[in-house]
Design a protein around this nucleic acid. Sequence first.
DNA 1: TATAGCTGTTGCCGAAACGGCAGCAACATG
DNA 2: CATGTTGCTGCCGTTTCGGCAACAGCTATA
Lengths: 312, 312
Amino acid sequence: MRFHSPSIQYFHAVRRTGSIRAAARLLNVASSAVSRQILKLEQEVGSPLFERTARGLTLTTVGEMLARHVMNVLQDLDRFRSDVASLSGAWHGTVSIACIESLTESVLPDLIASHRGRARRVNFTTEVMGSSDVLEALRRGEADIGIAIALRHPPDLRQVALKRFRLGALVAREHPLARRKTVTLEQCLAFPVIHALPELSIYHLLQPLIAQLSETPEPAIQANSIDLMRELAARGVGVAFQTQLGIGRLSRDAQLVFLPLDNAGSPVWSDLGIYVRAERTLPDFTESFLQELVRELGERERRENAAYPQVV
Amino acid sequence: MRFHSPSIQYFHAVRRTGSIRAAARLLNVASSAVSRQILKLEQEVGSPLFERTARGLTLTTVGEMLARHVMNVLQDLDRFRSDVASLSGAWHGTVSIACIESLTESVLPDLIASHRGRARRVNFTTEVMGSSDVLEALRRGEADIGIAIALRHPPDLRQVALKRFRLGALVAREHPLARRKTVTLEQCLAFPVIHALPELSIYHLLQPLIAQLSETPEPAIQANSIDLMRELAARGVGVAFQTQLGIGRLSRDAQLVFLPLDNAGSPVWSDLGIYVRAERTLPDFTESFLQELVRELGERERRENAAYPQVV
DNA sequence: TATAGCTGTTGCCGAAACGGCAGCAACATG
DNA sequence: CATGTTGCTGCCGTTTCGGCAACAGCTATA
């Protein structure tokens, strides 16, 4: 089932590893073979595809164009393979997901578990990273489905869905704020605060709001782990901020209380986008999972916004 | 610039010609070479790609899947080539168009002429055919852009735009109806009628309306050429039916009069769709022409519907 | 500054793949 | 029945591919 010329595959490996020798190790061939295929390819195209540095290879402009083409080819080959496989009733393949941390608590594990319950031979690869890295991973063809805070996405990505969740404060059950229905940012800042570091997207959601306030006290704790922030809040160390999506079902251990955040009378939204490479048709098992993901996130969006209706 | 394995190209040629020997002639190689590549391909995929008959080869289900993949690959290769070419400022390539006859009178010649005035090295291939053949030609990768009466289009095609034009009656200047602003079908049927044959889409637009009438006189003339029908109407032989798009600028020779058709007080629309293969990114010069086409058809839609406003 | 470790590239040579030629059997057409 | 078509298959020369070892260029470290 490998009917594409070696040049294509070698080029792809070199682009991913950034080195001919590393690509050769990956492909289990001699580095000279890889080098020659790249040289031949550059001769065919009539222009260098890589810039040679002492520490490896970097794509040129033409190289990036070819990379796009090769990615389209290889990803479409995957789809073809899955088409043929599903013809004989066998659904198998790997769904590769890049997402932000908020999803790991319950959305993804629940979905993957239930999906694997029905389709045992569909495997999953999930990698957690920052929002902009998610988009980059998709562009580089390292993931099939991306879930990230909805930034302005590049034109070669397609936003499959956009779901919005309320941002809220997370406090321990015994916290003075815990009995309120909603809280404002000012009310939270009267207490010790566990703040996200800039590498988390919550930082960029809250920062402009905090900047508007007259007083901006020092955050008691700064962290880049949602898990850590949640556990700290549960121990009463301070007030953390999250979408409910990121903290999972609170009912499991009722140590934590989620309080929707109000800013000037209106909710603070966190927009979650689901992304896919635009120039691509997904294999059917990937498409199927994607649909479930969109449905599930839509369901959660509905449920949570019903549980904490907007204050008018 | 031919860095894809011969199997791919040979398979593509065999699919198009429906014969190994014909493909070999097309490719300037021995038929045995083609035969072997196909056999090798079938071994790789693990399933026959063609059904062998005494008169050639027909695609199997798996073969059709591979055909889709190969088409995606080769069309994306074209796009890559054009990307590289446009990097050095040279816009060249061929835009292939499949369309119905209505476009040949003025829309397409005007557009192509003006486009070539600006981009000399962009060539055009246009083929006129029926609406359903247009969609089929796109699916088979024999055309880049398709223009057809908007039917239900298959999911592997993308409807880029949908423009509606009023259907009208076409009569000679001396015809008794010529001085009216609009006409109804009944009024037309009182005179000799030049009717389209079923292979033209006008037939399918008018047939349901005619069927509703109590009396349905025999058509005086039936034809499958829009040109012929127009010339007959100009000679006063009878009443023909067309969208104004299909008859061009009447001002050139004022022998003909266009009378918008009314049916039960509302206009009769002819929906024109512009189509493109869904799984595909167009080369930039093709995309550029496509945008002009959409804009021009939108402009004509606006102008004509302003010239013959809807009767309320 | 010298050394060790990395990079990509190149000659050489055996192995694998490709392609052309001619001939085969099977089928359709006259 | 003869003729033309189809796809397929040995045989064989040519081309391409890949592995080994050596080379030059660069970087980091001692």
